[in-house]
Simulated assay, not measured.
Amino acid sequence: MSPPLQIACPQCHALNRVPGERLGDAPNCGRCGKALFAGQPVRLDSGSFDLHAARSDLPLLVDFWAPWCGPCRVMAPHFEAAATQLEPAMRLGKIDTQASPELGARFNIRGIPTLVLYEGGREAARMSGAMPSAEIVRWARAQLGREH
C-alpha cells in the first residue's frame, strides 16, 4: 500500500489524505462530503492557489485566462474536457487574471491563455496560446513523463 497523498478539495479547499491506489475510486472530501474529482477545473484565486499548488501532492495544471480574451474563451471547453482525461493524476485549475491580477504578476504572465504546470509547488513547465483538448492532455502528460 502506498503512502497517502494530500489532496485539496476543489469545493472547500480542505486537505484530505487519500491512498494513491484509491485516487480512481471517486473519493469524497472528509469535510464537505463532495467529490474530490469532478472532471472540472477548480477556480483558484490568491487565497486558494498555494494550497492546491504547494500543499496538495497532485501536480497542478493552471490556465491563466481573462473573460475579455477571445482565445481564452475558445480554449475554455477544451480545458474542461482535458480535466476529465487528466484527473485524478493531476488537478486542473483556472485563474482569472483580471480578478486576481496579483497572481498574474507573481508568475510573470505576459500573454493569455497561458498554461503553467506546477509540481511540488514549483513551476515545471509553461505553454502559451490556445490548444485543443487532445494537445493539452498530450502536453501535460509529456511534461510529467507520463505519455499515456
Rank of each mutant, 00 (worst) to 15 (best):
P3I: 15
L5R: 12
Q6P: 01
I7Y: 09
A8W: 05
C9Q: 04
H13W: 12
H13T: 14
A14D: 09
L15K: 07
N16L: 04
N16I: 00
R17T: 08
R17M: 13
R17G: 06
V18N: 04
P19G: 05
P19S: 05
G20R: 15
E21N: 09
R22K: 14
G24N: 14
G24K: 10
G24F: 13
G24R: 11
D25G: 03
P27G: 07
N28H: 13
N28K: 14
C29D: 01
G30F: 02
G30S: 07
R31D: 11
R31G: 03
C32L: 02
C32G: 02
K34A: 14
A35L: 15
A35Q: 06
A35Y: 04
A38C: 07
A38Y: 02
Q40L: 13
P41R: 00
V42A: 15
V42K: 01
L44I: 05
S46D: 13
G47K: 05
S48V: 09
L51F: 09
A54E: 14
A54S: 12
D57G: 15
L58H: 02
L60W: 01
L60D: 04
L61M: 04
L61Q: 04
L61S: 03
F64E: 00
W65A: 03
W65K: 03
W65S: 01
W68T: 08
P71I: 07
P71M: 04
P71D: 09
R73F: 02
V74W: 11
V74E: 13
P77K: 07
P77Y: 06
P77M: 08
F79E: 00
F79T: 06
E80A: 14
A81S: 10
A81T: 07
A82Y: 02
A83Y: 06
T84C: 09
T84A: 15
T84D: 07
T84L: 08
T84N: 03
L86C: 03
P88A: 10
A89G: 05
M90C: 00
R91A: 13
R91I: 03
L92A: 03
G93R: 01
K94S: 10
I95R: 00
D96P: 10
T97Y: 06
Q98R: 08
Q98I: 13
S100G: 10
S100Q: 14
S100M: 04
P101E: 13
E102N: 08
G104H: 11
G104Y: 12
R106M: 09
F107D: 00
N108T: 15
I109D: 06
G111M: 13
I112G: 07
P113K: 10
T114Q: 11
T114H: 09
T114V: 09
V116N: 02
Y118I: 02
E119V: 12
G121M: 10
G121V: 00
A124R: 15
A124G: 01
A124T: 13
A125G: 06
M127L: 15
S128L: 06
P132H: 13
S133C: 13
A134C: 03
R138K: 14
W139G: 02
W139V: 08
W139S: 11
A140C: 00
A142E: 11
A142G: 14
Q143L: 00
Q143C: 10
G145F: 12
G145C: 03
R146W: 09
R146C: 07
R146T: 00
H148C: 04
